[in-house]
């Protein structure tokens, strides 16, 4: 009892400060994720008392749900393309604008970040990729004689997934990009002078031997943010290609979860899909975290 009192006196304030956020975070993020893991082994439907069904939800996904396989492949495709590309775009743009004067840099940072500020308004892309000949892209292609009839950019399964990729890339310079911009500005200038004396010949060598090793922390937070965005693609698909898209051509795991939870109320199955998504995200983070740490330590 005495030690509890002592501990309280010593750390009570710290826990008090932490408690408001920690309690809300636990109740509305941590515990719900735990519940989802639990429900993924049941047939929960929001109405009846759930009963335990073992691994059958997981087996159903991979053996008996073609749409899941499609969503899974699309999610991986989106992540593998938009993740690395968006990350590299953010890094290269941040690197290049760092050499410009302050005013230009400020304006360009604002410009490249602005799609993130626009949130969920994809209206502008609908003008560009509109299926009829009033769509900007179609009218250009028709004018220059590349095509005769308008291409169904948003509904043709051969094209619409690439349209989504382009739009996701357009919005991929978010907080990670700002972190890179700030990181480049705070690099230790004397390293560059020392490097120049030690025989660094060009900007590529400078980037490789001086800049990158110092950017480790920014590269890490950029990676977390990139992973969190590129596996959470879904609302973009609905806004551009509708729900469900033609033959589920832009269906993702996130949309599959929404479909089974909001429309079909199969919460158990939806939870199992969510667990699969969580596991993929955590695994990719662990791998990339390891890779970046090894890379920036040598």
């Amino acid at each position: 009892m005495e030690t509890v009192k002592k501990l309280f006196k010593k750390y009570g304030n710290d826990y008090f400060f932490l408690s408001f956020w920690l309690i809300i975070f636990t109740v509305f993020t941590l515990v719900p994720i735990g519940f989802a893991v639990g429900y993924s082994f049941t047939n929960f439907d929001m109405v009846q008392t759930p009963s335990f069904v073992g691994l059958s939800n997981y087996l159903r996904m991979f053996l008996d749900d073609d749409i899941f396989i499609k969503a899974f492949m699309n999610t991986m495709l989106f992540a593998v393309i938009t993740g690395p590309l968006g990350y590299i775009m953010s890094f290269v743009v941040g690197w290049l604008i760092n050499d410009l004067n302050r005013m230009t840099r400020t304006v360009l940072t604002f410009l490249f970040y602005s799609p993130t500020l626009l949130g969920s308004s994809y209206m502008m892309w609908l003008y560009l990729f509109s299926n009829d000949s009033y769509g900007l892209l179609n009218s250009w292609l028709i004018n220059f004689g590349f095509i005769k009839d308008p291409v169904q950019w948003l509904t043709d399964p051969d094209f619409n997934i690439y349209v989504v990729i382009v739009v996701v890339l357009w919005g991929s310079m978010g907080a990670g990009f700002l972190s890179f911009v700030a990181g480049f500005q705070s690099l230790n200038k004397s390293y560059f002078e020392a490097g120049a004396i030690d025989g660094i010949r060009n900007r590529w060598q400078e980037l490789w031997y001086i800049t990158l090793p110092q950017m480790g922390p920014q590269l890490l937070i950029g990676a977390v943010l990139t992973i969190s965005g590129s596996f959470a693609i879904g609302s973009q698909c609905i806004a551009l290609t509708g729900f469900p898209s033609t033959d589920y051509s832009t269906h993702t795991l996130l949309l599959h979860i929404q479909d089974y939870s909001a429309n079909r109320l199969e919460m158990g199955y939806a939870s199992a899909i969510a667990v699969v998504l969580f596991v993929i995200m955590i695994l990719s983070w662990l791998i990339i975290n390891k890779a970046i740490k090894t890379f920036s330590h040598d």
Binding site: V27, T29, I33, F35, S261, S271, M281
Partner: peptide, 15 residues
Amino acid sequence: ILFRPEVTSLPQYMM
């Protein structure tokens, strides 16, 4: 940080 609101929305919905 990995888990955006979109991703946790099903668990949150049940809560």
